[in-house]
Each structure stands twice: as structure tokens, then as C-alpha cells.
Amino acid sequence: MSDDTVENAGTNAGTARLERRGAVAILTLDAPKTRNAVTDPPVLNPLIAALEEVRDDRSVRVLVVTGAGKAFSAGGNIHDIRDRRGMFGGPADQVRNAYRAGVQRIPRAMADLEIPVIAAVNGPAYGAGCDLVFMCDLRIAGESARISSNFVKLGLISGDGGLWFLTRVAGPAVAAEMAFTGRAVGGAEAAALGLVSRVVPDAELMPTALALAEEIAANPPEAVRMTKRMLQQAGRVDLSTMLDMAAALQGICHAGEESRLAIAAAMKPVS
């Protein structure tokens, strides 16, 4: 796909860029000097604005999240953490409120998205950057990817709910090992552990992520949104509740025009 197919989606100020390729949106964390630290307001605020824009735009069918430069995201700004500046400074109750008003806005905004989100992990994803990876529905890693829930190495915990997402993706045993050791997992090991669906050469990362996004975006959009809702509930509710939900959503599908058109297209003779 050529660069001239890229359209600005309107949220390009600051250090998170939102672009469009047809029905696919690309959200790029763009603060290479801090390795895309998501706790910095110049990254955090446009990131949240971009997620809200995608949430409200029904023409967007898939979102791809990646980082500019050599890192996906270093997570927290290590200099601010060391110096206890910004959201990391002050008494415990002040830090607690800063987390709620700051970095915890990311998982809430991600949870509000009804569309599939793909993480294209282009390098180190540490701390809150690792958490952002696991907030996404699908993950593709470049060969240079390094994923680490490294909070314990800094005497900290995941303050943005990352262990909730990590445990759901990795399972309790792998999540515990990653959280207790804080060690980094490379792309190949991440694929072997099921943390990412595939690992590809760095040069092929975005083309691979965009090809997957376009494959998903080609499907009827409301069915995809409902499928994501069902996947989110899997493991959270009992079977009876899941079956009730499936029946209700399937009723909407069967009665809708989207399904009728999709079935008619599928039944056309192949020339």
C-alpha cells in the first residue's frame, strides 16, 4: 500500500499521531526521546484523545497501535520516577489520585473501544508500555521486540491494571513468572508463550499488522463489534449467561441488513 493512501484523521497534535488507511486507523506513539513514555502528558493526553476519536467514529473498523523510533513504549518516564516529579511525586494519596487521573485513563479508554485493536510491537515494551500491549486484542511482534512487566525491578507494581490484562492473555503461571521476575521476553519467546500471535522481521511488522487489520476490516463491522464483546465476556461470565448473550446478539444479527447482504455476497457463484 502506498503512502498516498494515508489520510490524517484529525488528531495529530502532540506526540500521539492518529492516521487513517480506509477503515483502519493507526495510532503511533511519537516521542522517541523518551522512548514513547505514556505517563508524559504530551503523550498521554493525545493518546486518550485519539482513542476517544476512534471510539466515536463508526467508520473505523480496526485500530493498530505502534511506537515511533526504536521502542514501542518504555512505559513510565524513568527520570520523573527517579526524581518523584509529576504524577510520581507527593504523598501516597496524591500519587494515588494522579494515577487515577493520569495513566489509568488508558485502560478505561481502551475498554471503551468496540473494535479490534492490534499492537504492532516494534521494540521494547516495558512497564506501562507492556501493559498497553496486553490491553490490545491482538499482538504482532517485530524481531527486536522486548516485552517486560518490569515493575518489581524498580520496587513498584503495575499501577494501571496491567496485571489484569497480562493474566487474561498469558494465563496465571506465565503472568506470575513475568511479574515476579520482571525479565524481558523477546519476540520468539513471546510467540512460543502465546503472548503474541506471530513474530516477523522488523521491516515486515507494519505491513503484516496492516494486512491483518484490513482482513478484519473487510468483514461486516457490526458482527465484528459483537464478536469482540463476546470475546471480552468469555471467562468472566458463566455458560448460561454467555448463551443468553449469544442468543440476544444473534437475534440482532439475523434481523439486520448487514447479515442479509453478507450472506447474499457469499452465495454468489464464483466466476
Rank of each mutant, 00 (worst) to 15 (best):
R61E: 11
Q250D: 06
T227W: 03
H254M: 05
Q233N: 14
S73F: 06
M245Y: 02
G162V: 06
I106A: 06
N12C: 05
M267K: 09
G22C: 10
D56R: 13
L156W: 13
A246S: 14
S148V: 04
G10M: 09
T66S: 08
V6D: 00
A23H: 12
S148I: 02
C130I: 00
L249R: 12
R198T: 14
L239V: 13
G86Q: 09
K70I: 04
T208A: 11
L195M: 13
A192P: 00
P221Y: 10
V174G: 01
G86E: 09
T208F: 02
I140R: 02
G76M: 14
S158P: 07
F165R: 11
V60E: 08
A128W: 01
F165W: 11
A176H: 07
L47D: 06
V65I: 15
D238N: 13
T227K: 05
K268S: 04
I48S: 08
R105D: 09
A120R: 01
G162K: 08
A74C: 10
V38A: 08
I216N: 04
R183L: 09
G127D: 04
V38S: 09
E19S: 07
G162N: 05
K228Y: 01
M267Y: 02
T39F: 10
H79S: 13
D57S: 13
R96H: 13
V121P: 04
R35M: 13
A184G: 13
G194Q: 04
E214G: 01
A176W: 02
A173G: 01
M135E: 14
G75N: 04
V196E: 05
V38Q: 08
I157E: 14
I118N: 05
D202G: 10
E53Y: 09
A223C: 02
I78D: 14
D30Y: 03
L212S: 01
R108Y: 10
G22Q: 12
P207V: 01
M242S: 11
R21Q: 13
T5P: 00
